[in-house]
Design a protein around this nucleic acid. Structure first.
Length: 327
DNA sequence: AATGGCGTCCAAACTTTTGC
DNA sequence: GCAAAAGTTTGGACGCCATT
């Protein structure tokens, strides 16, 4: 079953009793949709699913309540890597500040601490509400551990904004917690092959190393697989650890991933290097990346706004000087 | 039977090249 | 300079086969 179909089936099983035939019809529709029509259908489905989750919650007696975010703990299994400078989080916070919280989070009464709650999903909304000093809108439901991780995984799958490594570590954590593969597959809305790859990557890449790299949203499955493969060598692990410990290491997670991958592969490392160029006061002004074919100098326009223009104006003169030294 | 590894195929998004 | 074509990357799905 496809990832999307797993997701759909979970929701549709809930509706099947009330509306026989829905599942089969949806599967038939899935097989024929393609291209832009399918993309539009996915968007509509996404909206449908979110509203269905909430409607179902409300139908089963749950209601949306305002909670003090300080009373809400994170799920016992974390999925997303914490990130201090996540632009999406900043945007979410700004949206909540100006428009309020549009979509409630899902919580359950904390199994161990009376009066407290545990979030299935909506961790970033909780963090934003905390920082803004606002109450967080939440649907409170009684969920067992399995239902909690399923709800958490389904929400992530609907949004599709977890990176490959976040999903992989989430899968590994679930497996380490004793969940069997079908449950993890349902929680991640994935199939056995994909899950197998995710877990093999999560096991091959030491967790502290993966967290040091960060979510790396642009690094897809194949490159993580490549890195996982390279990290079979202890030397490669040491090289990567060394690179990530560099105090000059960029805060950009994707760039860190590329550095780690390069370090893991000596050949790659020899072909491509990136360094930060600083002025005499130690302020980073440019990032210089070099490989066999190109050299890329990226000036930080915020650190020194007019410097890039200054350099560009002098390119002709610099080239003339270069040529005269060559001859 | 369930699980995992691997290769292949497809679609979409993105980048680079080519021709006008 | 711009648009179209070609190439590349990525994510996802599927089937086959070996192993447990």
């Amino acid at each position: 079953m496809t990832r999307r179909n797993v997701l759909k089936s979970i929701f549709e099983e809930q509706l099947a009793a009330a509306n026989p035939g829905t599942k089969a019809e949806a599967q038939g529709r899935d097989r024929v949709l393609a291209g832009p029509v399918r993309t539009m259908s996915l968007t509509l489905d996404k909206i449908e699913e979110e509203s269905r989750v909430l409607q179902e919650a409300l139908a089963t007696g749950a209601s949306v309540v305002d909670l003090d975010p300080q009373l809400v703990d994170v799920s016992f299994i974390r999925d997303r890597f914490p990130s201090a400078d996540d632009p999406a989080f900043a945007a979410l916070k700004e949206s909540m500040r100006s428009h309020g919280q549009e979509v409630p989070i899902l919580v359950r009464p904390h199994p161990g601490q009376g009066g407290r709650y545990q979030a299935a999903y909506g961790h970033r909304r909780i963090a934003a509400a905390r920082e803004l000093g606002l109450k967080v809108k939440a649907v409170v439901r009684s969920l067992d551990d399995q239902q909690l991780v399923l709800a958490q995984g389904i929400e992530n799958s609907v949004r599709r904004d977890l990176s490959f490594i976040e999903r992989a570590i989430f899968a590994k954590t679930l497996e380490d917690s004793g969940y069997d593969r079908p449950v993890i597959m349902a929680a991640l809305s994935t199939d056995k092959t994909e899950l197998s790859k995710m877990i093999s990557v999560a096991r091959a890449v030491p967790e502290d190393l993966a967290k040091a790299i960060g979510s790396a949203p642009k690094a897809g499955r194949r490159r993580w697989l490549q890195l996982a493969d390279l990290l079979q060598s202890e030397d490669a692990v040491r090289r990567v650890e060394l690179v990530l410990a560099d105090p000059d290491m960029t805060r950009d997670s994707d760039a860190r991933f590329i550095r780690a991958l390069s370090a893991a592969s000596e050949r790659e490392a020899a072909r491509s290097t990136t360094r930060i160029w600083k002025n005499s006061a130690g302020t980073p002004l440019a990032r210089i990346s070099r490989d066999k074919k190109t050299t890329v100098v990226r000036f930080d326009e915020k650190a020194e706004p007019d410097f890039a223009g200054f350099v560009l104006e002098r390119l002709d003169a610099l080239y003339e000087e270069f040529r005269s030294r060559q001859s």
